[in-house]
């Protein structure tokens, strides 16, 4: 490896770039995932075909999956490294602190991130590896995503868990969308407000979109 690459990855700003880029990639993933998931409202046919079609391009699918895993790993790794570095930089707390000017979500990214990580693992175990509810899914066709979703969310606690998780993601994203742009050096007084609004808007859309599915199932709108 060139030494400058290594140096860049050791620097605070280099690490932030990695984190921001991987985060942005994941945001695009989420937007894609959400659009896919929305097909559920078009009925079992639509979403199942969608799932099936994806599987018809295994190379693309796997490339994308690998990329996603890399992004997640990079994101989590830089998050861990930076969080440790930042804690070490500030070892003594104030007796009285008033974090004026900073938002709650910006100060708790590590925590929300960690919750998201747990959620992703659970979620993969749930739908991708189908480990959590073997009794429910054992009868299903491999691409009957619709039924898989509907059957799962009969349980109110699971619905609660998904809502909570998507809300955590929303908190994470209210800071991170504008933040990642700032990290990449995009900041102009004229557009900052718009960027922040757009960030909040996307975060909320993702939250409402994702959490609408379990809620709709629970309410019997999807069955």
């Amino acid at each position: 490896m060139n030494s400058w690459v290594f140096k860049a990855m050791k620097s605070t700003i280099g690490q932030k770039w990695l984190m921001g880029l991987s985060g942005l990639f994941m945001i695009f993933f989420l937007l894609g995932h959400l659009s896919g998931n929305m097909l559920i409202y078009a009925g079992p046919e639509a979403i199942n075909t969608y799932a099936e079609t994806l599987r018809k391009f295994p190379a693309a699918l796997w490339a994308f999956r690998i990329l996603s895993v890399v992004a997640l790993v990079v994101h989590v790794a830089t998050a861990v490294v930076l969080t440790k570095r930042n804690r070490a930089a500030n070892p003594i707390p104030y007796a009285s602190s008033a974090w004026k000017g900073s938002s709650w979500s910006s100060r708790n990214m590590g925590m929300t991130g960690f919750v998201i990580l747990l959620y992703i693992i659970y979620h993969l175990a749930h739908f991708t590896w189908r480990l959590t509810h073997p009794e429910l899914f054992s009868e299903l066709e491999p691409f009957d995503v619709y039924q898989m979703v509907v059957l799962s969310f009969q349980e109110p606690w699971l619905v609660g868990l998904y809502i909570l998780a998507t809300f955590t993601i929303c908190l994470h994203l209210t800071h991170s969308i504008s933040s990642s742009l700032q990290t990449l050096g995009i900041n102009h007084p004229k557009y900052n407000l718009a960027i922040r609004r757009l960030g909040d808007f996307l975060a909320i859309v993702l939250f409402l979109g994702f959490s609408s599915i379990p809620v709709a199932v629970l309410l019997g709108i999807l069955s």
């Binding site: 605070t12 700003i13 690490q15 932030k16 930076l82 570095r85 930042n86 070490a88 930089a89 500030n90 974090w99 004026k100 000017g101 900073s102 938002s103 910006s106 100060r107 990214m109 800071h175 504008s178 933040s179 700032q182 990290t183």
Partner: peptide, 8 residues
Amino acid sequence: GACTNTKA
């Protein structure tokens, strides 16, 4: 530390 854009 690194800047995580908290703006404080």
